[in-house]
């Protein structure tokens, strides 16, 4: 994953539908006899491409779960950061404080909430998921497919509530203290832990995999992302490159369905 993540936030819906139609489409070609009652209306050539600079660029699908239909993300001042090792993304979207905003509650909490922070974990796709870009050039239609590296669903984390909690707790006990202490403990006791294995003969995972991930996550620093507007020159360029830079090699399936399945099953 590069620092220069290109985030096509606005294309989300397109991508989503593109993925599905592509999936069934490829199947269609390979196994025509299976779908005899589904006539072919029009053939559109498929073109496979990749991001212009695969070494530094990668393509990710971001789903904003629970995005209100009325809210548009266009022209919004979105900021983002990422923890690469933990595959964790955070986007901050400004909150529309003009509607449904409870000022009194905000005063009560002594917190001014202006941002909605959205978080999500990247899930690596195991291939087979493509972003489709529909291009009409010189009257010919073509579909450009770009493999997606990973997908994520982002959700509101209500970080401000946790921060209020933290403030409240820190007035009595320093809230962060136990976690920090336990971090120390973790390092210390990994050896001891192994010893306890021997005593009862079974492995006791005192520090489970997930807690290790949490630890890693907490230790890692956020790195900021540059968000590019959809009509910004950079993203325009990337889009152009994806559409045109392909070698115009029209994809034809050479692998038969059963061959593909063989490789799938036998790996």
């Amino acid at each position: 994953m590069s620092d220069r993540n290109e985030l096509f936030v606005d294309e989300e819906e397109n991508l989503d539908s593109g993925m599905v139609s592509d999936d069934t489409g490829s199947f269609h070609e390979a196994n025509e006899e299976l779908l005899d009652d589904d006539p072919i209306v029009e053939s559109i050539s498929l073109v496979m491409n990749q991001v212009p600079h695969p070494s530094t660029q990668s393509l990710h699908l971001i789903q904003y779960v629970g995005k209100p239909k009325t809210t548009s993300l266009d022209d919004q001042n979105i900021s983002g950061s990422i923890k690469e090792e933990s595959n964790y993304l955070e986007l901050n979207v400004p909150l529309d404080t003009s509607r449904f905003y409870d000022e009194t509650r905000a005063e009560e909490w002594e917190a001014q909430v202006t941002e909605n922070s959205l978080r999500g974990v990247f899930d690596k796709t195991s291939g087979g998921l493509y972003a489709a870009h529909f291009v009409i050039s010189n009257g010919t239609k073509k579909m450009v497919l770009v493999p997606i590296d990973s997908t994520t669903q982002i959700r509101s984390s209500f970080k401000y509530l946790d921060e209020i909690d933290m403030k409240k707790n820190s007035s009595t006990v320093n809230w962060m203290e136990p976690t920090k202490q336990s971090k120390m403990h973790i390092l210390q006791t990994s050896g001891k832990n192994a010893q306890s294995n021997t005593s009862d003969g079974s492995t006791s995972h005192a520090l489970g995999d997930t807690l290790k991930h949490v630890k890693k996550f907490e230790e890692e620093d956020w790195s900021a992302l540059r968000i590019v507007e959809p009509n910004h020159a950079d993203s325009e360029q990337v889009r152009r490159e994806i559409a045109n830079n392909a070698d115009d090699l029209i994809l034809e399936t050479e692998t038969r369905m059963d061959e593909y399945l063989d490789t799938l099953i036998n790996t």
Binding site: H185, I186, T189, S196, G208, D209, L211
Partner: peptide, 20 residues
């Protein structure tokens, strides 16, 4: 708690419970 195992914070206990 087994002897020697680390003491987990409440949050960690919660994560551990949900995860494993």
């Amino acid at each position: 708690r087994r002897a020697g195992a680390p003491k987990l914070s409440q949050l960690q206990e919660g994560i551990e419970a949900v995860a494993t």
